[in-house]
């Protein structure tokens, strides 16, 4: 582990947590502001029924922005989500000036009508974070879901 980069652990953790807060607020531009120009986003779940990974979202930065921009045009369940993440592991790659970060998350949904909160999904974020700039930025996020039954689903990325 790099001693030079080790001091950035706090910055890395704050980046992950801020990404959750901005997504909870549905501040999509704010979220993209945390991301590198070459940002890649993927969301998958493993199906034991067919023994395969299923890719449910697979976007570069532009495609993700298009998705965000289209959200207001669709009928959607607008119940808020609350993301609760815990950074488990930060591995540094000195040569690339990057960190590979594993975080567990739980996502809770609170109904608009009545305010009941229930667990919606659990999984892990596998993030690649650039440490070469003034502040850490997200280069890649791979969301691996453990939950597969998502009821009516959602339009909002995790």
């Amino acid at each position: 582990m790099s001693t030079k980069l080790n001091g950035n652990r706090v910055g890395v953790e704050e980046l992950i947590y801020e990404s959750c807060m901005l997504m909870d607020e549905r501040n999509w531009n704010g979220f993209l502001g945390l991301c590198d120009d070459g940002f890649e986003y993927m969301l998958t779940a493993y199906s034991p029924e067919i023994k395969k990974d299923m890719t449910f979202l697979d976007h570069d930065r532009k495609e993700l922005k298009d998705l965000f921009d289209l959200l207001p045009k669709h009928n959607t369940d607008r119940s808020p989500f609350t993301r609760n993440a815990t950074v488990y592991k930060v591995d540094y790659d000195d040569a690339k000036k990057q960190a590979n970060v594993v975080s567990a998350f739980q996502i809770f949904k609170t109904t608009l009508d009545g305010g009941r909160t229930g667990l919606f999904a659990v999984g892990k974020y596998y993030d690649t974070v650039s440490l070469g700039g003034a502040k850490p930025t997200l280069v890649k996020r791979h969301v691996k879901l453990d939950t597969r039954d998502l009821a009516v689903g959602t339009h909002y990325p995790f």
């Binding site: 449910f56 289209l70 009928n75 009516v152 689903g153």
Partner: peptide, 24 residues
């Protein structure tokens, strides 16, 4: 990969159409 990407737009749990059908 491309086939999954095509399907995901409208039919995954994040698909634009599936969610709309189910909430209705």
């Amino acid at each position: 990969r491309q086939r999954q990407k095509d399907g995901a737009v409208i039919w995954s749990p994040w698909g634009r159409n599936l969610h709309e059908d189910l909430i209705a």
